[in-house]
Simulated scan of single mutants.
Amino acid sequence: MRTLRRTLSQPSARLALAVLLVVAVVALAGGALAPHDPLGQRPQDLLQGPSGRHPLGTDYLGRDVLSRLLAGTGRSLAGALEAVGSAMVLGVLPGIASAWFGRGFSWASQRAADTLMIMPFTVFAIAVVGALGNGMHQAMLALGLLFAPLYFRVTRAAALGLRQAQYVEAAELMGASRGWVLRTHVWGKVLPTVAVTTAQAVGQALLVVASLTFLGLGVQPPAPTWGGMLASDLGYLTQQPWAPLVPGAAIMVTVGALNLLADAIRDASAPGARPRGRRWLPALRPRGAASPPAPPAGEPAPAQNTPENHRSQEADSHVTTG
């Protein structure tokens, strides 16, 4: 809760959360907010520019671009969240376990993570889709498997630092079970690191999902996605050179907000971080307490008991005693 308060005290975090809230609302209610049918083709409205009826124009089949953008937000974000969710399950638990369950398990899990880290995202996803069939779940499972080493390494590093903490060793010496130590002393400290990694991983997964849908993998046309809209606009750049800017701007704004939120969480969870906007205030006298008496006329005012005066008094005492 302290990290959450520190995060919300930062203007950049509040801005990022506002943008992500709008994106989440559009993702959940995009079909209801769409002014037209995202799949409705109107041959009489091919490649029209922005107008009152079509604020973002139409594509090469006469479909409303704004409606397709709103309807495609949910599919694009759902794919990224599915990939990151599977990566958390496959990476966080083994990362924590590798710091507690012996050298054999630690060595085997590290070698598995090293093997997955050298595989390219897009090529591996294409191979999995070719073997299991072209579907969103197959592609996102492949992405989650490749994102898992990121969670594994980050979580393992945090758990190893906590493994040698004095309060953890004291709890183990007093007979606390391993599960109780992990739940009480480890998970709460690892959670901010997992949150930072998740915000960054969702942005990366969103870019990879857009790349796969750009290639026609995961979601089959004519279902709208941000990557699919980019692919369909490339053949008509002569008529509408501004068309790819619409889905590209949606991807850029969403990924930028996620990275901004990740930076804010990382700054808030850093050791010694304090909420911004809070300044040092002098100690106040209790209500009803009498003010110190004024010095007589002609006498200097007594020195206040401030840290600077205290240090100067200590220095004077050392000089006198010396």
Rank of each mutant, 00 (worst) to 15 (best):
227 G>T: 09
242 W>G: 07
201 A>P: 11
205 A>I: 08
185 H>I: 07
240 Q>H: 09
243 A>S: 12
176 A>L: 01
161 G>D: 05
191 L>K: 01
191 L>E: 00
245 L>H: 02
134 N>P: 09
178 R>G: 15
262 A>N: 08
191 L>Q: 02
182 L>T: 03
218 G>H: 11
259 N>H: 14
250 A>G: 06
260 L>K: 10
223 A>H: 13
150 L>A: 14
205 A>Q: 07
130 G>S: 14
158 A>V: 03
215 L>Q: 08
172 E>S: 14
137 H>S: 11
231 A>R: 15
245 L>D: 00
203 G>L: 06
266 R>C: 12
189 K>N: 15
255 V>Q: 02
256 G>V: 07
160 L>N: 05
175 G>I: 04
218 G>Q: 12
217 L>Y: 13
240 Q>C: 04
149 P>E: 02
268 A>C: 13
156 R>V: 07
144 G>M: 05
223 A>I: 15
243 A>C: 04
247 P>Y: 08
153 R>S: 06
247 P>S: 04
212 L>V: 12
170 A>L: 13
204 Q>F: 11
165 A>R: 15
149 P>H: 05
163 R>S: 15
251 I>S: 05
210 A>C: 14
232 S>M: 14
139 A>L: 14
137 H>N: 07
234 L>Q: 14
154 V>M: 04
246 V>A: 05
141 L>W: 12
196 V>S: 00
139 A>E: 03
212 L>C: 10
228 G>F: 09
268 A>E: 12
169 E>M: 13
148 A>S: 13
260 L>T: 15
140 M>V: 02
202 V>E: 00
138 Q>P: 02
210 A>F: 11
180 W>S: 08
129 V>W: 05
222 P>R: 09
157 A>N: 09
205 A>D: 04
162 L>K: 01
175 G>E: 02
140 M>T: 06
168 V>R: 05
192 P>K: 04
237 L>R: 11
158 A>D: 01
229 M>Q: 05
232 S>G: 14
129 V>Y: 04
152 F>A: 03
132 L>K: 12
155 T>E: 01
173 L>E: 10
205 A>M: 06
259 N>P: 02
222 P>M: 10
262 A>S: 11
130 G>M: 12
234 L>G: 06
262 A>W: 08
238 T>R: 12
239 Q>M: 12
152 F>E: 03
239 Q>H: 13
217 L>C: 10
178 R>P: 08
262 A>H: 08
260 L>I: 11
166 Q>S: 09
128 V>T: 14
195 A>W: 02
188 G>L: 10
170 A>C: 06
196 V>L: 00
130 G>A: 15
218 G>K: 09
219 V>A: 06
197 T>W: 02
202 V>F: 03
164 Q>H: 10
